[in-house]
C-alpha cells in the first residue's frame, strides 16, 4: 500500500471539476489542483481578493505586486478575466455563485463539520480570512488533507476538536489514502489506494466507515 503524494491528492481532486465550473481554491494543497485540470475542460478560478479567470504567472512577465491571488502568489489574468472589489468578490462567494470550493482542513467530522481556521495556539494570532464565507456560500465544499495528523491521530472525527469553521458543509474529502463522501448516513468510502482494505482504513479513522456501492480503487498517475 502506497499513500498518495500531495500532488497526487491534488490530481485526484482535479478530475472531479467539471467543464465550465467556477472554482475557488484555498491556500496550500488546494492551490496545486489548478495544474491538473484536464486540458479539454474550461474552468474559471476565483480569488477572494477580487480576481476571476486567472492562471499561473507567465515566466515572460516581471513580478507585479498588484497581481496576486489569495495566497499572495503571483498570477496572470487570462483573456476574459476581470478584477472587482471585495464586496463583489464575497457576493460571488456568499451568494452561492461559485460551483466548488476546494479547501484544506485540520479536521472534518462525519456530519461534514469543517475545522480549518485555528488550532487555538494562544501564542499565534488566529486568522480566518475567507474560510467561513467560502464554507457557507460555495456550491460544493470539498476538502483536501492528509488522512492523519503528524502524530498519527485521525483527522476524520466523530466531532471536530478544533473550533469549527462551519457545521455540516463538507461534501467530499480527498486524502492520501482515500476519497470519502459525507452522506446523511455518515462517511462513505468511494475509493482507497490499491492494497488498502476497509479494516485498515477504519483503524486510521474515528467515525464508522462503510463502503460505497460504486466503490473502486483510487488510481492516480505517477507524478513525481
Amino acid at each position: 500500500m502506497k499513500p498518495l503524494s500531495r500532488k497526487q491528492i491534488a490530481w485526484r481532486a482535479a478530475q472531479d471539476i467539471v467543464d465550465g465550473s467556477y472554482v475557488n481554491l484555498g491556500i496550500g494543497l488546494p492551490t496545486a489542483v489548478a495544474a491538473f485540470i484536464p486540458a479539454d475542460r474550461e474552468v474559471l478560478f476565483h480569488s477572494e481578493n477580487g480576481v476571476l479567470g486567472f492562471g499561473p504567472k507567465l515566466a515572460s512577465e516581471p513580478d507585479d505586486p498588484e497581481m496576486i491571488n489569495a495566497g499572495k502568489e503571483q498570477i496572470s489574468l487570462l483573456p476574459g478575466g476581470c478584477f472587482f472589489t471585495h464586496t463583489d468578490s464575497f457576493v460571488m462567494i456568499r451568494g452561492g455563485h461559485l460551483d466548488v470550493a476546494l479547501l484544506g482542513a485540520f479536521e472534518v467530522s462525519e456530519t461534514g463539520d469543517l475545522a480549518n481556521w485555528t488550532t487555538d495556539n494562544l501564542e499565534v494570532p488566529p486568522g480566518v480570512g475567507g474560510a467561513m464565507d467560502l464554507a457557507v456560500g460555495a456550491g460544493s465544499i470539498r476538502v483536501l488533507m492528509e488522512h492523519n495528523a503528524r502524530d498519527g491521530s485521525p483527522r476524520l472525527k466523530k466531532f471536530c476538536r478544533y473550533p469549527l469553521t462551519a457545521a455540516g458543509v463538507v461534501k467530499r474529502v480527498y486524502t492520501n489514502l482515500a476519497v470519502l463522501d459525507v452522506t446523511p448516513d455518515g462517511l462513505e468510502v468511494c475509493e482507497m489506494v490499491p492494497g488498502m482494505n476497509l479494516k485498515e482504513l477504519q483503524a486510521l479513522t474515528e467515525p464508522v466507515l462503510r463502503l460505497s456501492e460504486d466503490y473502486k480503487e483510487l488510481r492516480v498517475p505517477d507524478l513525481e
Binding site: H86, T87, V128, G129
Partner: peptide, 24 residues
Amino acid sequence: VPQGTLSERIRAAGAGVGGFYSPV
C-alpha cells in the same frame, strides 16, 4: 472578522443600513 463579513459590514455603513443577517 470573516473576510466577507468585514467587507459587507463596511458596505452597510457606506450604504446607510443598520446591519444585515448572514449565515457566515
